[in-house]
Design a protein around this nucleic acid. Structure first.
Length: 742
DNA sequence: GCATAACAGGTTTTT
DNA sequence: CCTGTTATGC
């Protein structure tokens, strides 16, 4: 009896196929993690491959940890020397060794999306870019996709020739890069792009890693982007022992640059590739699987595969509708309590999934009220809370004095009486002398016009220098504590005395605990816990990594976060057109967005093992305004006989082909309103048209009452001009204004 | 320089 | 609705 006996035929095949390119198309719940871990075990135990020569790339740190653990269970040794990591942490590890070849210090800082935003803002200010015309977000995403597509500044400038606005973006990109380098910092996308550059320009470095990684495995391959593809291609080029695992039906990260072609065209790029399909699902009931298959079959251009299962038929899928989101939440929470009390499913067996993080709130409120343990994954990340970022900024300042962003963030936190005027003077001096902000601080008395600020600035520098000097002598935990005390950060919070400040103090404490955990974890491996390592870990953790399966709590998260997880009892909530599929994709001319949303629906449905509940609310508050929506088009794609619609559910099954069209039409009318015809107005509260026309009196939630002066069609929306009694004439878009006839 | 008030603007999903 | 930025008054 060997460990491989538990695998089915295809799984075995995938496991034993160790040489050459291999594509494993693994449907949801088809046991791909088992295959991967067994394959690694097979390489090590049977083929005599040194664990040191194996590289496995996963999407999250959590998946990496689990994989290592499982291999260790199978093989019994050696798992610690396998490289199992995420793309990002792998790149950091490589760059820390070699990035000096690209002109950076090896102790570079990693900028998260907040830092990125701050930096872009500064760039815009410096280049006089009007952020009303060029939105920060647009610039960030332009830069990010450039890096994902490996477009350098030079290249972008060339492409932008003759196009003024693209040139402005390219200018921003150039300045952004300049600042990053000056700060000795890399953003998330840089981690990948710079590694590719490193390999391309340094053949010997590339060869070193090619010779090290004789066997490469990539999980969740459908979500890789161009630069990740290139990275793998480079590494695998020499030995070609590349095994990728993925499911094109679960490709849900296009917005982040993921290129579904990577998986669809794998066989074109690697013509000698073996392709193995895992179509047997071990996770879900027949009912759930059939539902998932029915939905996804509406997509085009998929790899041909059909999931099947030997599992029981199982319960029908429950579909419930509610008047509003509040009732929806109440039902779901009640239901979880009911099954828990009946001993059917523990809290940890239940998961609530939704499209947007904002939807978590009403559930959270109910859970808090009733004292039920729950865990929200995602949303505001622990490490992006203000107080946590402040402390981290101190640590970054100490670790990498060139990180101007960090220094400027904390120079007056807590208050030291250092204001904008002083900061600007230092900044100007630093820019003029081409030195870092902190360097300028150290020679503050040379700065002209600095005036009375000098003393305060000097004591700040003295503080940082003092911290730097003791850093070497202290362990990580002690040092973080020391920083928190010495900077007066905690004291300042304590002085505030508010409830909010108390919460912040707890978070700082929590950060200290994290440092302790980190130090402990490192100690177990015999390594010292350096400050840089800690900052790096903190920069690369995802919220999902903190999910603990042994804890008995209900898990709440977005559909995106849920990928790769499974639960016996799942609630898919907010199944409404405009929420899911999202408003954005419904309005978009490009229909591929809908396909991606549908894949997300597929991911959601296939998370459920036994019991699946779908809910939607007819009325929901979005951006402070009540929005009426209809059931999600995806619900209409489900075969009726799989559904239990409950008592208060009534609908006729619509023409299937038209669901998308209908969804879009209804939504267009609801959100943006049609013609301003008076005869629409009749009392029916759910009228699809504008309920007001020219000359009508309307009420706005902020501006009060007024008279509609004008209605003009503007693109997809209507521009309404209203003469308000209190604030005068205002122009607004009907879709956003939320005007009510009075 | 700082605290507070007023206000504009905006939304998916995240390593 | 909620956040983040600007205006205002001390």
């Amino acid at each position: 009896m060997s460990i491989y006996d538990t695998l089915n035929k295809e799984q075995k095949e995938a496991c034993f196929c160790t040489e050459g390119p291999l594509l494993i198309l693994a449907g949801a719940g088809s046991g791909k993690t088992r295959v991967l871990t067994h394959r690694i075990a097979y390489l090590i135990a049977e083929k005599g491959v040194n664990p040191y020569n194996v590289l496995a790339i996963t999407f999250t740190n959590k998946a990496a940890g689990e994989m290592r653990e499982r291999v260790d269970d199978l093989v019994g040794y050696g798992s610690e020397s396998i490289w199992v990591s995420t793309f990002h942490s792998m790149c950091v590890r490589i760059l820390r060794r070699h990035i000096d070849l690209l002109g950076y210090d090896t102790n570079f800082t990693i900028y998260d999306s907040d830092d990125q935003k701050t930096l872009v803002r500064e760039v815009c200010k410096k280049l006089n870019i009007d952020t009303k015309v060029y939105k920060e977000r647009a610039i960030i995403s332009a830069i990010s996709s450039a890096k994902n597509e490996m477009v350098t500044v030079t290249k972008m400038k060339k492409q932008a020739e003759g196009d003024f606005s693209r040139k402005r973006i390219a200018d921003a990109y150039e300045e952004y890069e300049k600042q990053l380098k000056a700060n000795n910092a890399l953003d998330f996308d840089d981690l990948l792009f710079r590694t590719v550059e490193l390999f391309k320009f340094n053949q010997d470095v590339l060869e070193y890693y090619q010779n090290r990684f004789l066997y490469i495995m990539v999980d969740e391959y459908q979500d890789t982007n161009s630069v990740q593809f290139e990275l793998i291609r480079l590494l695998a080029d020499k030995n070609r022992n590349l095994c990728v695992v993925g499911d094109d039906d679960q490709s849900i990260y296009k917005f982040r640059g993921a290129n579904i072609k990577n998986i669809l065209d794998f066989e074109k790029v690697y013509e000698d590739a073996t392709v193995i399909k895992l179509e047997r699902n071990y996770r879900s009931t027949k009912t759930i699987l059939n539902a998932a298959n029915a939905v996804i079959s509406n997509n085009y251009g998929r790899k041909d595969k059909t999931l099947w299962t030997d599992n029981d038929e199982g319960e029908k899928i429950r579909l419930r509708s509610f008047d509003n989101a509040y009732e929806e939440a109440e039902f779901v929470v009640d239901d979880i309590v009911t099954v828990q009390e009946a001993g059917e499913y523990g809290y940890k067996d239940s998961a609530i999934l939704y499209r947007t993080n904002a939807q978590s709130r009403q559930f959270e409120e109910r859970f808090v009220n009733r004292g039920i343990p729950y865990k929200i994954v995602g949303g505001v990340n622990f490490y992006s809370r203000k107080e946590v970022k402040d402390i981290l900024a101190y640590l970054k300042t100490i670790d990498n004095g060139r990180d101007d962003l960090a220094v400027r963030r904390i120079i007056n936190v807590p208050r030291r009486g250092i204001g904008l005027t002083s900061i600007n003077r230092v900044t100007n001096y630093a820019t003029a002398k081409e030195m870092s902000f902190y360097e300028a601080l150290r020679v503050v008395d040379l700065i002209p016009d600095i005036g009375r600020g000098v003393g305060k600035l000097e004591s700040f520098t003295a503080l940082i220098e003092k911290l730097k000097s003791v850093q070497e002598e202290m362990g990580l935990l002690d040092f973080v504590r020391f920083v928190v005390d010495e900077t007066g950060y905690m004291e300042a919070l304590a002085l505030e005395g508010t409830e909010e400040a108390k919460g912040r103090m707890e978070n700082v404490e929590e950060l200290i605990t994290k440092a302790a955990d980190f130090e402990e974890g490192k100690a177990a491996t015999g390594e010292p816990a350096s400050l840089s390592d800690f900052l790096e870990e903190v920069a690369l953790v995802a919220d999902i990594d903190s999910l603990d399966e042994t804890m008995d709590y209900v898990v709440l998260m977005t559909l995106h976060s849920a990928k790769g997880l499974e639960f016996p009892n799942v609630y898919l909530t907010g199944m409404e057109d405009g929420v899911f599929p999202s408003y954005m994709t419904l309005m978009d001319e490009d229909k591929s967005g809908i396909e991606e949303e549908r894949r997300l629906a597929y991911v959601g449905i296939t998370r459920a093992e036994e019991r699946l509940t779908l809910t939607y609310a007819k009325k929901r508050m979005v951006n402070g305004e009540t929005r009426y929506s209809k059931m999600s088009m995806f619900l209409k794609e489900l075969p009726m006989d799989l559904l239990d619609s409950g008592r208060h559910f009534e609908k006729s099954k619509p023409e299937k082909e038209n669901t998308y069209f209908q969804a879009k039409q209804t939504f267009k009318q609801k959100a943006f309103n049609a013609t301003p015809l008076r005869n629409f107005g009749s009392a029916s509260e759910e009228s699809d048209g504008l309920e007001y026309g020219e000359g009508d009196r309307v009420r706005h939630r902020k501006y009060g009452d007024g008279i509609v002066k004008n209605l003009v069609r503007g693109g997809r929306d209507y521009e309404v001009t209203v003469e308000f009694d209190r604030v005068g004439q205002k122009k607004m878009f009907a879709g956003f204004a939320g005007l009510v006839k009075i």
